[in-house]
Design a protein around this nucleic acid. Structure first.
Length: 772
DNA sequence: GTTTTGACTTGGACCTCCTAGT
DNA sequence: ACTAGGAGGTCCAAGTCAAAAC
């Protein structure tokens, strides 16, 4: 349209850069829009920035623009002094006050907000669900952004690895590769696992050797010693831990600077957040499960490998690597991506896209849930369809029907074909193999209709469930379990372990069939549907239970989380229990035992006292000394941190701090272990009181442990973020007078902003799809 | 028809910063 | 006021699905 044209494609991009350091140049926009934007800037009422996401011209220019707009400008002094005041205010505010500002976040005065908050506030003014849509087939008409931000080039540390006991000189590139390996946790999920460690090492070493070149002395991994580099990295971590608040703030500021520059995009005259504006740094590829390529070197991406997508009239941003330029330029309004490049491990395209709270993502999210809701109205028809086909004479039809049952009832993913030389061996429905099914797993014989399904799903997460196809769960209400069982038996007959169960089926065939039954229906819609439906039903169930209305908001939230957990279990959203969590759980178990023992002691004391024997009653030993010692050590460490300048001092400070923390822990333990005792011989009343208190403590602790144990392997976040229609949750909150903040974090509220206006009686059902 | 590519969603691990509990 | 623990945010790998390429 306007100035820049598609001829740009043939010009070396680095040289045609029109605007050095900001996303939007007002010069490329018509006057009317220019004015509108200026009004917006003034809303930020702002201080410093030349790095504003939008073309904030430098200060001098602001003045002129502000003048032209008739609004008053501030003296620099005032502008600078303001944020400091604000921060103090926040720090000093009490919890109560903080809670209020949090719940009423929108009402926080503009002047108290920091820059990011003010931008966010301004962005809230745009409600995409009230705005008009871009032309059909297009996701946008105008789009401007600053491109992707590249990480700093590698700075060599000069620490030498050893080969065969001898220090080796490495070039920066070689040293960088060695450092990637040294940075891997030897006990971590790649090197700590005897199954994956050899794969990782083999791949890493092959790539490392390629970097070193043919004639390099390093030839045998066994003779490599990365320990000096590893030690260095650990020291760096200790140094980092000792940073002062001032340094922490500086780090945040410089991160923010990049965010203000690259983190926003101007799409059709409104501001949107970019999701991943930092280019992925090089490193060792961390494939999950038994990924055959883990350990390979993920190369540094050069700007020349990056293609950027923006509107024709948008100025081309300058890339932040001196002497480099974007590889290519595109003006494609049918796609969402702002930048794309190829990674070298799997030769896949990666994208820079808008963030989850953007209109692009919001629109597709809403349409996803509407599609799932539409399935509510069609589910009977669909179940009838596959019920009939479960007995079809055509093998393909029968397999389609069986797969539909599995996807509908067991919530499996569709499971596309995978190349096991290139990727980890994981499966879903269509790629299930005979070896993943175990008929009659408990050798019960006769009419047993159980199958144990055991396989690795997405992200190599284990799916292991025994399905009793003869049970009421799968036979009642048109469950069809028995027929499905017969079909599985049939599909596995005369097949080898490694053969596909659904030999005539691919996701393409299955989805083509689904599309024929309901417009827009694919395999994954079933997961969304089942997750949302389950949430709604679980919530309604508890809402109808006796005494519900008397529950406090916090108690209601517990019930919500229980419903959430049901969904997560349905979707098999697991998480591995970290070592820290395990030890924490063990510690809690130990504490519980201590409490139980203490209660026994208390009972004994009571018995003696009632018998009139007040001799040999245990009393508290001095614990003040230990506490004092620990406190002093902590104080000392803190001082060390404050004064530490050299790396050695910083390391020493962190180490002292860690030691002091151990002391404190020990002191706390001592205190805990004799918390049931008194300094002097107690009275019977005192003991009785304490016994009741301890009973309460014990049950509380038991609850806590049970809760932690129940949740340790279930991850609730994924289903909340991707599967449960937010409108169900919002309506539930409204009905039950639970503040939405108790359910959704700030990020989620941003992402689900489109769903906040639903009425309290909103239901997840087919009616939704008719609303558009 | 089959395979590959492209674009987007979904996923858990890890790190950081905040808050509840003391 | 302080800190442990957890919530939430970041990162980027790994899926799904449609369309293009063969």
């Amino acid at each position: 349209m306007a100035d820049s044209s598609s001829e740009d494609d043939n010009v070396p991009l680095g040289q045609i850069t029109k605007r050095p350091d900001s996303v939007v140049s007002s010069s490329s926009l018509p006057n009317k829009e220019k004015r509108r934007k200026i009004v917006n800037y003034n809303q930020f009422d702002d201080d410093d920035d030349d790095s504003a996401p939008i073309a904030r011209p430098k200060k001098k220019k602001i003045k002129t623009e502000k003048k032209s707009n008739g609004s008053s400008s501030k003296t620099p002094d005032k502008v600078v002094s303001k944020p400091i005041k604000k921060e103090n205010g926040i720090k000093k505010s009490s919890h109560k006050a903080a809670a209020v500002t949090k719940t009423e976040g929108a009402k926080k005065p503009l002047k108290e907000m920091d820059k990011a908050e003010r931008i966010a506030h301004a962005m809230q003014a745009y409600l995409w669900w009230n705005a008009s849509d871009p032309p059909k087939g297009c996701q946008w008409v105008k789009m401007e952004h600053a491109g992707v931000s590249f990480p700093e080039p590698y700075t060599p540390h000069g620490i030498k690895m050893r080969y065969d006991g001898v220090e080796v000189d490495l070039s920066p590139l070689e040293e960088e590769a060695a450092t990637f390996f040294a940075a891997m946790d030897p006990e971590g999920m790649h090197l700590g696992n005897p199954k994956t460690a050899p794969i990782f090492i083999k791949n890493f070493f092959a790539d490392f050797r390629a970097v070193l070149g043919k004639n390099h002395v390093i030839k045998d991994f066994k003779k490599c010693d990365f320990e000096p580099i590893r030690e260095y990295l650990n020291q760096q971590k200790l140094i980092k831990k000792a940073i002062t608040d001032e340094e922490r703030k500086q780090n945040k500021d410089s991160r923010n600077e990049i965010m203000f520059k690259f983190g926003y995009s101007l799409v059709d005259d409104h501001l949107e957040k970019v999701g991943n504006y930092n280019m992925e740094p090089p490193g060792a590829f961390r494939g999950r499960g038994e990924h055959p390529k883990m350990g390979k070197l993920k190369q540094r991406v050069e700007p020349e490998q990056v293609m950027i997508n923006l509107s024709e009239c948008a100025p081309v941003p300058k890339c932040n690597v001196p002497g480099h330029a974007w590889g290519d330029l595109r003006h494609d309004p049918t796609v969402q991506w702002l930048c794309q490049w190829k990674e070298n491990i799997n030769n896949q395209v990666k994208y820079m896209q808008l963030a989850a709270q953007s209109s692009f993502k919001g629109k597709s999210d809403r349409s996803k849930y509407n599609k799932a809701a539409k399935l509510c109205g069609n589910i009977d028809k669909i179940r009838a369809n596959y019920k009939k086909n479960l007995k079809s004479k055509s093998l393909e039809t029968r397999q389609i029907a069986t797969a539909m049952w599995v996807i509908d009832r067991l919530a499996l993913r569709v499971g596309g074909e995978k190349d096991t030389d290139e990727e980890a061996d994981t499966v879903g429905c269509c790629s299930l193999r005979v070896e993943h099914l175990k008929f009659d797993p408990n050798n019960e014989g006769s009419d047993n209709k159980e199958i144990e399904l055991e396989f690795l799903g997405k992200d190599s997460m284990l799916f292991k469930q025994t399905i009793d196809f003869g049970s009421a769960l799968y036979t009642e209400n048109n469950g069809m379990g028995e027929q499905v069982y017969e079909n599985f038996k049939l599909f596995c007959k005369k097949k080898k372990k490694g053969d596909d169960v659904f030999s005539d089926l691919t996701p393409t065939i299955l989805n083509a069939h689904l599309k024929g039954i309901m417009e827009g229906l694919t395999a994954k819609v079933f997961r969304t549907y089942n997750a949302s439906k389950t949430l709604q039903e679980e919530l309604l169930k508890t809402e109808k239970s006796a005494g519900w209305s008397r529950l406090t908001a916090a108690e209601k939230v517990v019930e919500y989380n229980n419903a959430n957990r049901e969904v997560a279990i349905l979707c098999n959203h697991q998480r591995s229990v970290s070592k820290a969590q395990e030890t924490q759980l063990e510690n809690l178990g130990g504490k519980l035992q201590t409490l139980i023992d203490q209660k026994k002691v208390l009972k004994k004391i009571l018995k003696r006292l009632t018998e009139g024997n007040d001799k040999n009653i245990p009393t508290k030993k001095d614990e003040a000394k230990a506490i004092e010692k620990a406190t002093k050590a902590l104080e000392k460490a803190k001082k060390m941190k404050e004064t530490a300048k050299t790396p050695e001092e910083k390391i020493a400070a962190t180490e002292a701090d860690e030691k002091a923390k151990i002391l404190k822990k020990e002191a706390a333990e001592l205190k805990f272990n004799q918390a049931h005792l008194w300094d002097k011989t107690p009275t019977s009343e005192q003991v009785m009181k304490r016994i009741t208190a301890w009973s309460e403590k014990i049950s509380k602790m038991e609850m806590n442990i049970k809760h932690k144990d129940d949740n340790k392997e279930v991850s609730l976040g994924t289903s909340k973020l991707n599967y449960m229609d937010p409108r169900i949750s919002v309506a539930w909150c409204k009905r039950n007078e639970v503040p939405i903040e108790k359910i959704f974090s700030k990020t989620m509220r941003d992402k689900f902003n489109w769903s906040m206006a639903v009425p309290p009686d909103w239901q997840f059902n087919e009616e939704i799809s008719k609303q558009g």
